[in-house]
Write a protein that binds this DNA or RNA. Structure first.
Length: 313
DNA sequence: AACGTAGCCAACCGCCGGGGC
DNA sequence: CGCCCCGGCGGTTGGCTACGT
């Protein structure tokens, strides 16, 4: 039980909001068990956290959902909802549907999305849902470039600031195409396929010819001496996601693989990292996705959590 | 004007997984 | 390995408001 002795419940007052805001501005988010004491609030940690995340946090968008937000919500819910059914027997996967959807809707919280779904879409038997239900569930066989997230150990030279394979990759003139990773206007799938056809890539990463399995190529690639850092077995205690996020705050890279914003060498920002990551890891696999996934996939910038859910067994 | 009902949404509750010990 | 604590999640509730009768 949460420490419930004498703890205030119910609606938050303006004074409480101010105290909570001041506390978080001073100490930052997290350490929620300390927040009530630090802020001088007679509230439990969960209540403080919820109030901040769902209401007080800056950039929270209020008001009605726009049509495109609703559309994306419907598609993601259909997609994740279906996946959830198939994952129901997997004890390890409790799906964060609402938070994942909210993650694709800037300024919206999981609570907002959940409330909107339960009130506007679910209860009313929305015509949107009806349309989606009526839509034929044709399954089409497609080739998908699957970027495989990887984990690297912390002593990887990228992270210690020493020159690494990324630097040598990106110094190469021919690699400029790699850094032009498509985000929204262009399908990543299409981009990956076009990328594979580039003749210039032979020289850099010794991309196999089309008749050769890219998977085999990557496995042989990993054996190369220069690649030992990259192919290093991840340490179990290290969070792949955290590592990813630690890299994602950097700015654009120039041709020398130096960040134009912070000046650090070989710190790979998210965009460019994607390109670098997708090249050795891309695997052409036969996969089955429903039509809706294909239709909106190109509109989605990549989301690690979402990708992992979609690819979960 | 008074009452009943429906809708909305902030907040609570219980559970789960991860990490530390 | 088991226990405990914490953060985080989805499901649910309850109070407020708008609307209808």
């Amino acid at each position: 039980m949460e420490g419930s002795f004498g703890v205030r419940k119910g609606a938050w007052t303006e004074e409480e909001d101010i105290l909570l805001k001041q506390c978080i501005q001073k100490y930052g988010e997290g350490k929620w068990h300390l927040v009530p004491v630090s802020a001088g609030l007679n509230r439990c940690r969960k209540s403080c956290r919820l109030r901040w995340l769902n209401y007080l946090k800056p950039n929270i968008k209020r008001g009605n959902f726009a049509a495109d937000e609703v559309d994306l919500m419907l598609r993601l819910h259909k997609l994740l909802g279906n996946r959830q059914v198939s994952l129901a027997n997997n004890n390890n996967s409790k799906h964060r549907i609402w938070s994942l959807i909210a993650g694709r809707l800037p300024g919206r919280t999981a609570n907002d999305v959940k409330n909107y779904w339960n009130t506007h879409l679910l209860r009313k038997g929305s015509s949107h849902i009806t349309k989606l239900k009526e839509k034929p569930q044709d399954m089409v066989k497609v080739n998908v470039i699957k970027p495989q997230p990887r984990t690297f150990s912390k002593n990887l030279t990228w992270l210690s600031g020493k020159p690494a394979i990324v630097g040598s990759f990106q110094k190469k003139e021919d690699m400029r195409d790699i850094s032009q990773t498509p985000m929204k206007s262009e399908s990543r799938i299409n981009w990956g396929e076009s990328f594979q056809r580039k003749e210039d890539m032979r020289d850099i990463s010794q991309t196999p010819t089309q008749s050769e399995s890219r998977i085999n190529w990557w496995e042989s690639f990993q054996k190369k001496e220069d690649m030992r850092d990259i192919s290093q077995t991840p340490m179990q205690s290290e969070s792949r996601i955290n590592w990813w996020e630690s890299l994602s705050n950097c700015g654009e890279l120039d041709e020398r693989a130096t960040c134009t914003q912070c000046g650090r060498l070989n710190e790979v920002p998210k965009e460019t990292f994607w390109a670098e990551e997708i090249v050795p890891e891309a695997k052409v696999v036969g996969d089955t996705l429903d039509e809706d996934v294909l239709n909106f996939w190109g509109d989605l910038s990549f989301d690690m959590d979402l990708w992992e859910v979609l690819n979960a067994e």
